[in-house]
Design a binder for these strands. Structure first.
Length: 193
DNA sequence: CCCTTTGAAACAG
DNA sequence: CTGTTTCAAAGGG
C-alpha cells in the first residue's frame, strides 16, 4: 500500500489554498508529484484530506525531502508573476510526474505534449490543439484537460475557446469559482482577457 | 466486440 | 440563441 502525503499552503499573491499530493520514492530520495488541487479556504482543503484519507504534513520542516519545499517555492514564484515553465523546472529538480499513468492513450499524450510547450502568458484554443495533433475531436481535448491531475504544471488554464470565451477549468464551466481562477491565473501571467 | 452516451467545442442558420 | 456535427473515451450489454 503506497502512502500518499499531502501538504497545503496559501500562495503569497493569490487568495486560495493549494494542496499538493505526492508519493515518497524513498529509494530514489525523490518524490513523485501526484495531484494539485485548489480550494477556496483551509476548511475545504482539510475536508478533502479527510475524505481522501491522506497523510497531512503540517509543515515542510518535518520531512526530509527538500523536493516539497522546492516545489512550493516554484509554484509561489510562478504565481507571483515569475514567468517560469513549471513543467521544465520540476523536471530539472528530478521530481517525478506520472504522465504516462494519468494519460495512457496516445491521443491524451499528444494533447499534453502540446500543452507543456506553452509559455506563461501564451494561450491556445481547443481547436488549435486539434489542428496540431491532427484531430477534430475538440470536445475530447476538453475531456483530457478535465482529467489533468496537475493543473498549472500542465497548463490547461491557457486553453481558451476559439471565440475568446474562457472555457472551462477543472471540470467546471460557466461563471464558476474555477473559471474565475482560470482568469486570475492568466492575468498573473500577463495575458489580458 | 458493438452500441450508446458524454463532453472544458465548433459551426451553421 | 438553437440544432447539428464531431470524435475520443467510458460504460453497458
Amino acid at each position: 500500500m503506497i502512502q500518499i502525503s499531502a501538504i497545503y499552503f496559501k500562495p503569497t499573491h493569490l487568495n486560495i489554498i493549494i494542496l499538493i499530493t505526492f508519493e515518497d520514492l524513498e529509494e530514489q530520495k525523490k518524490i513523485k508529484l501526484k495531484e494539485i488541487h485548489f480550494f477556496k479556504n483551509k476548511t475545504d482543503a482539510t475536508n478533502f484530506v479527510g475524505r481522501e484519507k491522506l497523510e497531512l504534513i503540517e509543515d515542510t520542516h518535518t520531512i526530509s525531502r527538500n523536493d516539497v519545499q522546492n516545489l512550493i517555492d516554484l509554484i509561489n514564484n510562478h504565481l507571483s508573476g515569475g514567468k517560469i515553465n513549471l513543467f521544465d523546472k520540476i523536471s530539472e529538480l528530478g521530481i517525478q510526474l506520472d504522465i504516462q499513468e494519468k494519460f495512457p492513450t496516445s491521443f491524451s499524450q499528444d494533447v499534453v505534449r502540446s500543452l507543456i510547450n506553452l509559455k506563461p502568458g501564451e494561450i491556445t484554443t481547443y481547436s488549435k490543439i486539434g489542428n496540431e495533433i491532427g484531430s477534430k475531436a475538440y470536445r475530447a481535448i476538453g475531456n483530457v484537460c478535465k482529467s489533468n491531475p496537475i493543473p498549472l504544471v500542465i497548463p490547461c488554464h491557457r486553453v481558451l475557446r476559439k471565440n475568446g470565451e474562457i472555457g472551462g477549468f477543472m471540470g467546471k464551466s460557466d461563471k464558476t469559482w474555477e473559471t474565475n481562477l482560470k482568469k486570475q491565473l492568466l492575468k498573473i501571467e500577463g495575458y489580458q482577457i
